[in-house]
Every structure is written in C-alpha cells, then in structure tokens.
Amino acid sequence: MSGCMRQEPDGARADYNFAYLDEQTKRMIRRAILKGLAIPGYQVPFASREMPMPYGWGTGGVQVSAAVMVPEDRFKVIDQGADDTTNAVSIRAFFERTAGVATTTRTREASVIQTRHRIPEEPLREGQILVYQVPIPEPLRFLEPRESETRKLHALEDYGLMHVKLYEDIARHGHIATAYDYPVRVEARYVMDPSPIPKFDTPKLADCPAIQLFGAGREQRIHALPPYTRVVPLDFEDHPFEASKPDHPCGLCGATDSYLDEVIVDDAGGRIFVCSDTDHCEARRDSGHVGEDTA
C-alpha cells in the first residue's frame, strides 16, 4: 500500500506520508468534504481516525487540513485568535514536520488557516480555506442528546426545538442568552453549528469569499460552507441578532472594531482589553497605530 507511515520501535518516526494521513484515509475525508460542500450545512459522517493528539484538541480540523493541504500551501493556525497559544503552536509544528509546509502568522499570506473559536479580523479572500476545529457539530445536541433523533429532525427540517429554546431565553432574560456557538441557518435549509466562535464572528460566516470547512473528529462529522453561501443567524423579528463585543478600544493598537480579550494585568484586578486576533493587532501596531495601554 502506498502512503503508509512507519514508526520505529524506538519511537522515532522513520518517515511520514505527506501530511501524516495515509492516502486511503485522505480519500475518505476528501469524499466527505465534497459532499459537505454540495450540501452546505449538512453534517457528513466520516470515519475519523485516531490521531497522535487527543480527541477534543483539534483532531477533526487536523484531519481536514491534512486532506486539503498541498506542499505549496502556507499554513496558519490560531486558537482563540492567537498564533502563539500552545495548542496552535503544537498543531503548526505537526504540519511543519509531517507536510513540510511553510507556515505564517499573517492572515493575508495564509492559504489554509486552521482555527479554534475565532474567524480572523482581516476579511478572507478567494483562494483561502478556513478550517474550523469543532467540538460538537450538532446544533440540536444540547436540546436532544440522541443522534438518532437529531438526524430525523434535520431530515424533517424540524427546528422547532431550537426556536423554542431561543424564545424561552427571550422570555426569561429579554435576550437570546447565547454568546458564542450561535446557531445559523444555511441556505434556508440546514441549521448549522458554527463551532464555538463568539457571536461577534457569526456575520463573517455569510457571503465569505473563502471556503469554510468544519471538522469534528471525535463526533466524526464534517460540514462545509462554499464561498458566498447564505448563512443567517436564527433570531426573531422583534429580537434581531446582534453581534456584540466589549465596548472598548484595543489597549495595544487602539482598534475599535476588533474582538477583544479582557486581560487581568495586576493583583488589584486591573484590566485591559486587547485584540484577540494577534496578527491583526500586530499589523496595526506595525503601521503606527497605538493604544492607550502601550505608553
């Protein structure tokens, strides 16, 4: 069989197939990706493999990235919007070792971006691929734990449960109490889980020039959004969807339109707000933007 990886008994890997996965596994994932693109928002089952990193740590994203990657790619990995969070570093190193691809922290230069919990601030462009790591791909899962049931609900296009949940939120809190992982409707058909991105990022899913692929390894599902797909957050006429973020400028670059992390900076509980997208923040600072907390 072509493309099998050998491991030496002493633990050193003798060689890898390109991007780690064997070719048969890649073909299986590639077929699932194509069906996912053909049926936007529908969760395609795939025989997720055991990866050398734990389930829940991006195995779905890693398998999707491995299946789409070519040697000429420039690969970027972010976790929480940052390139230097430990798991992002670990995944980037994995592909440097197993695929030999060039990596970058710059959104603009990347051709494949694997992400956990954020969509970059810089608008994506045609030719880019955004790969999401997805923990629970089923938007109805916390309303109905059984896969056998939720699959029927999707088949019947029965999203009453979700509307009831959102409506109960409004009745209780005056708002839809979902701050991240906000459910969306794709092309007026499937309700889709966008992975736990903050509500702030939800509008970026729609009409995006890039291909968006979602991989859930443990749950063995892939879903996808082709470019320029209609993606609408679920809401009510009298309670329209509203993207929100902390009402501050970035303390480092002064950006007022980026998603912010709240950082506790001293023992007295002093806080500053900084861009969660580290590349966005750095690029702004490099071009001379200054925030209040840099002095």
Binding site: P54, W57, G174
Partner: peptide
Amino acid sequence: QATGFLEHIKLPHYVDFQAELELVRKL
C-alpha cells in the same frame, strides 16, 4: 474519546468566556 474531550477543557477558552462575561454583565 472521553479523556480527550474531557481534558480539552484545559485548553484556552477565553474567547468564549469573554463572550459569556459580556452577556452576564449585560443581563
């Protein structure tokens, strides 16, 4: 599967937590 998903909550979740913080403050 279980241990991976259980232990993944050690990974940073501060973006989602921030979104929750904002929501709880607002409510």
